[in-house]
Amino acid sequence: MRKSSFIRESITIEPNLDIGFVEVTPEMIRPYTPYHWHDSYEIIYVMSGSMTVQTLPVSKTTYVSGSVICTPPYQIHDITASKDTHFILAMIPSEVMRKYIPDLDQITFMIPKVVTSEIERTKLETLQKTMYQMLVAITFQEHGYLLRFQSSFFELMYQLYHNYSHYNKPATQIDKNYERLQQILSYVQDHYTSVITIDEISSYVNLQPQYFCHFFKKYMGQSFLSYVYEVRISKIEKDLLQTTDSIGTIAERHGFTNIDLFRKKFYKKNQCMPREYRRR
């Protein structure tokens, strides 16, 4: 709507609706969203441009115009989007889905990236059309739009359940590791503006410091400190574009007390300085 960094991302639920729903145009695009997770189903319809989603353990998939992506709750992932990406995002809370799909916890919704038959193509086109109808209803808000939106929402859930549900395998040790990663990411989200030591975070998840560093690097593909910097820079990028606060104020707000270190990390990620980034 790029969701990235081991953090829990909150999505505002629309008034009078059961879900979060938003259209993201190229002007609104954040090229990169660090690793993060939701407690909702994230459904994205890529209307134009392209989007790469990387999940843990490391699996990277690029989606092009016409793709529909379903990321389940608690799946840690990041998102990278091209500057011309235009998409629709629906966030459906698990408790809402569970009211109508009793066996929700036993299934995963798997939408193929590539359709190879006319039947699959028809199913995908129906899914695209349903999400677009939801967008039209919420955008123009004509008389009875809530009824139109909710009827399309129920149709969306039905299509996911009827056409794309697969039963899960039993839980494994990998699932337990994901739970620990979620704890780590949530902690970073809550404390990234302060110094987080390895002793502090490893104690929080009941791991020895040395093993914690190995564990985090194995599953995240980067050091813990690099990840914290990534989260801070992602927050700063947003404030640079959405506020008129000074660069120093923004950097300090998000945990950088050393302005030279901040500029170095920012340039490494964006290949430009903060002032230039703001003028884009």
Rank of each mutant, 00 (worst) to 15 (best):
R2Y: 03
K3I: 12
S4M: 07
S5T: 10
S5C: 08
S5I: 14
R8K: 15
E9D: 07
E9S: 04
S10E: 06
I11C: 02
I13D: 04
I13R: 13
D18P: 05
F21S: 02
E23Q: 15
E23A: 13
V24E: 02
V24P: 04
T25S: 01
T25Q: 06
P26R: 00
E27G: 00
M28S: 09
T33A: 03
Y35T: 07
H36D: 05
D39W: 10
E42W: 05
I43M: 09
I43W: 10
Y45E: 09
T52L: 04
V58S: 10
T61Y: 06
T61E: 07
Y63T: 03
Y63E: 03
Y63I: 07
V64F: 11
V64D: 04
S67N: 11
V68Y: 08
V68C: 09
V68H: 12
C70T: 08
T71D: 00
Y74D: 05
Y74K: 12
H77E: 11
D78T: 11
T80F: 06
D84Q: 07
F87P: 00
F87D: 13
F87Y: 03
I88S: 04
L89S: 14
S94G: 08
I101N: 00
Q106Y: 03
F109K: 01
F109A: 00
F109V: 15
P112L: 12
V114D: 05
V114M: 10
T116D: 06
E118S: 12
E125G: 08
Q128L: 02
Q128E: 10
Q128V: 07
Q133F: 06
V136W: 13
Q141W: 08
E142H: 11
H143D: 04
G144A: 09
Y145F: 15
S151P: 00
S152Y: 02
E155L: 13
E155G: 02
L156G: 15
L160A: 01
Y167F: 13
Y167L: 05
N168F: 03
T172L: 08
T172H: 05
N177K: 15
N177M: 11
Y178E: 12
E179Y: 11
R180C: 02
L181G: 06
L181S: 03
Q183L: 02
I184V: 15
D190W: 09
D190M: 08
H191N: 09
Y192V: 10
T193Y: 02
T197H: 05
D199N: 15
D199Q: 08
S202N: 08
V205A: 05
V205T: 07
P209A: 11
Y211A: 04
F212A: 10
C213W: 04
F216V: 10
K218P: 01
Y219L: 14
Q222M: 09
S223V: 11
V228E: 04
E230N: 15
S234C: 05
K235W: 06
E237D: 12
T244Y: 04
S246D: 07
S246R: 14
I247M: 03
I250Y: 00
A251M: 06
G255I: 14
G255S: 08
F256Q: 04
F256N: 00
F262M: 03
R263D: 04
F266E: 06
K268N: 09
K268F: 08
Q271L: 15
C272V: 13
C272D: 01
M273P: 00
Y277C: 00
